[in-house]
Amino acid sequence: MATSYFLLTVFLALASSQAIASDPSPLQDFCVADKDSPVKVNGFVCKDPTHVTADDFFKAAKLDEPRNTKGKVGSNVTLINVMQLAGLNTLGISLARIDYAPLGENPPHTHPRATEILTVLEGTLYVGFVTSNPNNTLFAKVLNKGDVFVFPEGLIHFQFNPVHDKPAVALAALSSQNPGVITIANAVFGSKPPISDDVLAKAFQVEKGAIDWLQAQFWENNHY
Rank of each mutant, 00 (worst) to 15 (best):
K72F: 13
S132V: 04
P179I: 13
A114R: 09
G154A: 06
F6S: 07
Q177D: 11
P179Y: 15
S75K: 05
D36A: 13
G92V: 03
N89F: 10
F44Q: 07
L125K: 03
K47W: 10
H51A: 14
D29F: 03
I80H: 02
A15G: 13
E220L: 00
H164L: 10
L85D: 04
A114V: 07
V10M: 06
V82W: 10
I211D: 09
V130A: 13
A2P: 04
S176V: 02
V52Q: 04
W213E: 14
A172H: 08
A2T: 06
F11P: 01
P162L: 15
V52H: 03
I117P: 03
L95D: 09
G209F: 02
G154Q: 06
D99H: 01
P112E: 12
S75N: 14
P107C: 05
K59R: 11
F204E: 13
D212T: 13
I117G: 03
H164K: 15
D197K: 07
A19W: 12
A21M: 11
P179C: 15
K59N: 07
L88T: 08
T119W: 03
S132Q: 09
L8Q: 14
E65S: 12
E122M: 05
V127G: 02
V206M: 08
V130M: 14
G180R: 05
H111N: 15
G123W: 02
F158Q: 08
L125H: 01
L174W: 09
D34F: 09
V120A: 00
H109I: 04
V73P: 03
S94T: 00
I195Y: 15
N222Y: 04
K208I: 00
P152A: 12
V41Q: 02
N89R: 07
D147E: 12
S16T: 08
T3L: 14
V199N: 11
E153L: 15
A203M: 06
L200V: 10
K35R: 15
A101G: 07
Q159R: 06
L155I: 09
A86I: 00
F57E: 09
F58M: 13
A60P: 05
T50R: 12
V52D: 01
T69C: 11
T124P: 04
P179A: 15
T78A: 10
P193K: 03
W213S: 10
P49H: 09
A216W: 00
N222F: 07
F158P: 07
T119L: 15
